[in-house]
Design a protein around this nucleic acid. Structure first.
Lengths: 336, 336
DNA sequence: CCAGCGCGTTGGAACGTTCCAACGCCCGAC
DNA sequence: GTCGGGCGTTGGAACGTTCCAACGCGCTGG
């Protein structure tokens, strides 16, 4: 641990050239003679030179960094979206700087501020809970792309989202086509994603002439919440044969609740989630779900950011991806 | 999106003071008069001033950032460790910069280089796969703490690990005390963590006089790997009643394999994992495991980094945390 | 009444890099 | 033989911040 790191000047001195030439050589310019280049790279290597990213981004006035705000890292759904983001970001020679807000607006504010202090050139926000005011404020400083929340719009905000209403409808339609009619819903709390899925549920129930069976209990997108809400539904109406649950994580909770209520899945009770998180494919019962193309959403979001970085005048966009029915182990024809 | 951001000079001009005073006021120094402070903060607010982190860390020669290299974000185990890390890092007024290496040494190298370019003041490496040479090289530039891999040592490298040999032994001992004797092992591939757990398994089997029943099949710490390896074990010796699986993720795979082989868990077959990842407590069968105090390991690692940042002469340390038996739904007394 | 002190404030230097205008040199063209 | 052009190279300015030595002022104590 040398007390002080070698700088570009140390390299220049050792190689017997000017710092400007070192700068060029390090960045791989072709206007450096082979002889100089070799001497410089050798000197840099011998000294263990490492360019100072802070100085670089100061002089450059670009950080080559994209900031990503994630809801949290425990729900693997976000990790999947992030994979897509990072693939594109890396391919552009940029870095990502990752923070988590846990849906806490206080913390989101602090983390976003830190990202902006770092002069990130673009921002990708991936969370179903997200303070719209913060997003709008950030959008005044750099391009912002929001994943999952199509309802947050404003100057400088692009979105990449699924059609959650439609997905909600399809979940119901698929159960109906399996012969189910008493289909209840575990919702996902106070956010637009959950509201849309619930609306889809209600619309499809009405269209199928099943309005009388509409039954909703509020969850909160967590496993524990799904478990409690599902248990309550099964108590309120033991005749339920189908359960549409607002996301995969709470659907896993609903599976537990079903077993605790001595309902066997899927023969007695079919359960459908949303998201298509890969870990839900794992375990003894693999979850049927309305899957979103998570990695693709991440890639798309990153592409949108770069398009706006590259041409600052570019129009903001609102992309919609399609969810798809992924039948696995928790759905079956209605009993009887 | 103003074409150019306000700087400290703009704030100074607007508030009618010098940039030095603005700098002091922004950082909350008490040697600024109330009057000046108020004028400065108001001007900063009106202009939407935001300190430039790059300039700051350049002038300061400290980044107030801790770099964290994670294996990947999909295994929730790493997210749990990270939670502990971030708690401590935030409490010190620092930030974390997060990258993932996916056990690919090429990528690890690039990501570590990026972190060091950023002048991170400390580095926490959390991965069971990790190139020791890279860790040692990084340790020449800043304090390094490795979580999970006690075998990687060297100048400037501290470690925070569980005693995996001991955990491996205890997993076997617990099964033995439940009456099991035909206990097989799914290992975790070519890394020290897996090797230690396997060694513990072998030692405990020998001590219990069960050497003749030692049976090992290699997995790779993934769900798919665990599933395949477990299936092979059950085919090689259908008499197996206990399975010690190298980590929770592959243990979940083993549960699937058991069901595919028509063995019911836990009545026919007991399965034990390692790690104590929270998502394994979820779903229909909750996994019995040798749990590590994951968040605590993260906190401990971060504490160690800061101790060495604060007093550069501090000795490097090698901490050991204790794993504990967490009986849940996949273990039961031996059949018959 | 003056020296000395403390306090709030200031300008300039430094941090390590990139960019830019300008340099000297060699070569080919007239 | 001179001139112009290209090429490799150079020093200085800039980026936005923090640190430091030093400033002027009013106050206090002798």
């Amino acid at each position: 641990m040398s007390s002080t790191r070698p700088t570009i000047n140390d390299v220049a001195a050792r190689a017997g050239v000017s710092k400007s030439l070192v700068s060029l050589a390090i960045r791989g310019s072709d206007r450096v003679s082979d002889e100089s280049r070799e001497a410089i790279l050798r000197a840099a290597d011998e000294l263990g030179y490492r360019p100072n990213a802070a100085a670089r981004s100061l002089a450059d006035r670009r950080s080559r960094t994209i900031g990503v705000l994630l809801h949290d890292l425990h729900n693997p759904v976000f990790a999947q979206v992030l994979d897509g983001v990072q693939e594109i970001v890396r391919s552009h020679g940029y870095r990502t700087m990752l923070v988590t807000g846990h849906g806490d607006s206080q913390r989101e504010r602090a983390e976003l501020a830190a990202l902006l202090d770092f002069q990130v050139e673009g921002l990708i926000l991936i969370s179903h809970r997200l303070d719209p005011a913060l997003a709008r404020q950030a959008a005044r400083e750099c391009p912002v792309v929001i994943v999952m929340r199509h309802d947050i719009t404003g100057r400088g905000i692009s979105t990449v989202c699924a059609d959650d209403v439609r997905a909600g409808r399809e979940a119901v339609e698929q159960l109906v086509s399996l012969g189910h009619s008493r289909i209840a819903h575990v919702s996902g709390g106070e956010n637009r994603v959950a509201a849309d899925r619930e609306q889809g549920y209600r619309e499809a129930m009405a269209e199928a002439g099943l309005s009388e069976h509409v039954l909703v209990e509020a969850g909160d997108f967590t496993e524990a919440g799904g478990r409690v809400a599902a248990a309550r539904l099964l108590e309120r109406d033991p005749g339920i044969t189908g359960l549409v649950v607002a996301n995969d994580l709470s659907a896993l909770g609903a599976v537990v609740a079903a077993q605790e209520a001595d309902r066997s899945v899927p023969s007695d009770l079919s359960i459908v989630g949303f998201d298509g998180m890969s870990l839900a494919a794992l375990g003894s019962l693999t979850l049927t779900t309305m899957a979103q193309p998570l990695e693709e959403m991440g890639r798309e979001a990153a592409e949108r950011v770069f398009r706006r970085i590259d041409s600052p005048g570019a129009r903001i966009t609102h992309d919609q991806v399609v969810s798809s029915w992924l039948p696995r182990g928790t759905t079956a024809p209605a009993p009887g």
